[in-house]
Each structure stands twice: as structure tokens, then as C-alpha cells.
Amino acid sequence: MPSEASGDRKRSLHETIRSDIEGSIVSGAWQPGSQIPFEQDLAARYGCSRMTVNKVLTELSRAGLIERRRKAGSFVRRPSSQSAVLKIVDVRREVEALGLPYHFEILRRAVRPAIKADQPLLAVSAGTPVLDITCRHFAARRPFCLEDRLINLSAVPEVADEGFATLSPGAFLVSRIPWSTAEHRIRASAADAAAAEVLLVAPGSPCLVVERRTFDQDRPITHVRLVYPGDGHEMVARFAPTGG
């Protein structure tokens, strides 16, 4: 059984490691986005177990100082002022802001194992259970948006039996499932035959495509691809000079 002195030493070492890492981040020695040493390297540097280092990194992640990425390591978290200006907006609110009635319909819904093509989208390994769902949103009687979504059921198993009778998949996730980070990609695209049929536009029509991934710490929650007819949607961001 460890002695009291041994216990004091372990607590002191834990505090030393945390203080050193915090100091490097706060002082700017480790810039936002930079990778910090791996667990095994820190354990060797301080002459302790990886478990001790892991506990320190877990505390720093919860404090919002670092971001831990599975199989990639730990990185200094970027301040929120540098995050994307886009918010996760419910499609229903977008439609209602136009003064139009909103409704949606589920076109396809399947629980299946993730395949190789899903990996770059949802960042899960092949075989992970996912919910693959397609939804069409309407503004009055006109199709407003096509939604293709993958949900990681290993992270949110309660969604597997959800019928989305009253809330669309996106609205349900935002209201029920916590998330910590999101990544947006926005691009222009021409409507392929499948999207054109759902959106009631001609094939090749210009569309705005918004892709988003959300995570709870390092756990992927969902990937969604939203396709809007290009003549009826735009992205707007408000910003101010930073003095640079």
C-alpha cells in the first residue's frame, strides 16, 4: 500500500504537469491549434505513468484549454473568437423567418453499419451503427432544402428508434443531444438528377451546399449535407474590423 508521502508526491506531480501545460498555453508558448506532446512523451519527461498524464489532459480538455482528437493527439484549443461565425440554425426557423408555413417529410430512413464511404464524412470506423436519413423541407408548398444526414448511433443510441414525427432530425438533435464543436463547409454545386427531382428544379441548376459535422469532445455525432436551390437561399455573416 502506498505511503502517505507517496500519495503527496503523486498529487504534487499531477499539479506540476497541469501547471506546466497551462503555463505554456496561457503564455502563448504553445499557440492555438498547435499539437502538444503525446501522452507517452509527457510520461517519460515527468517520470510518471501514462494514466497520470491522461488524467491531466482530461482535466484540461474539460476546462476548454485543449482539444483531444482520437488517434491524432491533443491540440491547443482555438479561442471561441476564432471559431466559425455560422450558427447551427434550424431549417424550420429559416422558413418561418420568411413568413411562410413550414413542414418536412422523411424520404428515406435506414439503420445500417457504416461503410468505407462514410468514414471521411462521419469520422467513424467501418461497421459502426449509423442512422442514414434523407429529409425534404418545405416553405409553403415549395421544396426549400434537401437534407442527407448520418447519425453516429454509438454516440447517440437513443436516436435509433426515433420516428421524427414532430421534429426534423436536425431540430431533434439540437434540442436533445449536447455538442461541443461544429465544422461547416459551404460550396456551390449543380443539382444532380436525384437532388433535382426532390427539389423540383432542372438538373444542373445552381445550388448552395452546406455540409456540417458536429462533435461532443472527440466523439462524432452527425454529418449533414443540406442542399438549397441557389435562387432561394444565401449565407450571411456579420463581422467587425479587428484592427489587423
Rank of each mutant, 00 (worst) to 15 (best):
Ser3Asn: 04
Arg11Ala: 10
Ser12Thr: 12
Ser12Met: 11
Leu13Ile: 12
His14Met: 08
His14Tyr: 11
Glu15Leu: 09
Glu15Ile: 09
Thr16Arg: 12
Arg18Pro: 03
Asp20Arg: 08
Glu22Val: 11
Ile25Val: 09
Gly33Ser: 02
Gly33Ile: 05
Gln35His: 04
Ile36Arg: 01
Gln40Pro: 02
Gln40Arg: 13
Leu42Cys: 00
Ala43Pro: 07
Ala43Gly: 06
Ala43Cys: 00
Ala44Leu: 06
Ala44Tyr: 01
Tyr46Ala: 05
Cys48Thr: 15
Ser49Ile: 02
Met51Leu: 09
Thr52Lys: 02
Asn54His: 14
Asn54Arg: 13
Leu57Ala: 04
Leu60Gln: 00
Ser61His: 01
Ser61Gly: 05
Ala63Met: 01
Ile66Asn: 00
Arg70Leu: 12
Lys71Trp: 12
Lys71Met: 10
Ala72Tyr: 04
Ser74Phe: 04
Val76Asn: 00
Ser80His: 14
Ser80Met: 13
Gln82His: 14
Ala84Tyr: 15
Val85Phe: 13
Val89Arg: 15
Val91Ala: 08
Glu94Gln: 15
Val95Asp: 04
Val95Thr: 08
Ala97Asp: 14
Leu98Pro: 10
Leu98Thr: 14
Leu100Met: 13
Leu107Tyr: 03
Arg108Asp: 04
Arg108Tyr: 10
Arg112Tyr: 08
Pro113Ala: 06
Pro113Met: 07
Pro113Asn: 07
Pro113Thr: 07
Ala114Leu: 11
Ala114Met: 10
Ile115Phe: 12
Lys116Leu: 14
Asp118Leu: 11
Pro120Ala: 12
Leu121Pro: 11
Leu121Val: 11
Ala123Glu: 15
Ala123Tyr: 13
Ala123Gln: 15
Val124Trp: 08
Gly127Arg: 11
Thr128Val: 15
Pro129Asn: 05
Pro129His: 01
Ile133Thr: 03
Phe138Leu: 00
Phe138His: 07
Phe138Trp: 07
Ala139Trp: 08
Ala139Phe: 06
Arg141Asp: 13
Arg141Thr: 13
Asp148Tyr: 03
Arg149Cys: 06
Pro157Glu: 05
Pro157Arg: 05
Glu158Cys: 02
Gly163Met: 10
Gly163Ser: 12
Ala165Val: 09
Thr166Gly: 01
Leu167Pro: 02
Ser168Met: 02
Pro169Asp: 01
Pro169Asn: 01
Gly170Ser: 03
Leu173Asp: 04
Ser175Tyr: 01
Pro178Gly: 00
Thr181Ser: 14
His184Met: 11
Ile186His: 12
Arg187Gly: 15
Ser189Gly: 13
Ala190Ile: 11
Ala190His: 13
Ala194Asp: 00
Ala194His: 01
Ala195Asp: 03
Glu197Ser: 10
Val198His: 00
Leu199Phe: 04
Leu199Arg: 07
Ala202Ile: 08
Pro203Arg: 06
Gly204Thr: 14
Gly204Asn: 09
Leu208Asn: 14
Leu208Met: 14
Val209Trp: 04
Val209Gln: 09
Val210Pro: 05
Glu211Met: 08
Phe215Val: 09
Asp216Cys: 05
Asp216Met: 06
Arg219Ser: 10
Arg219Phe: 04
Ile221Met: 10
Arg225Glu: 03
Met235Cys: 14
Met235Phe: 14
Val236Thr: 14
Ala237Glu: 12
Phe239Val: 13
Pro241Val: 06
Gly243Pro: 04
Gly244Lys: 10
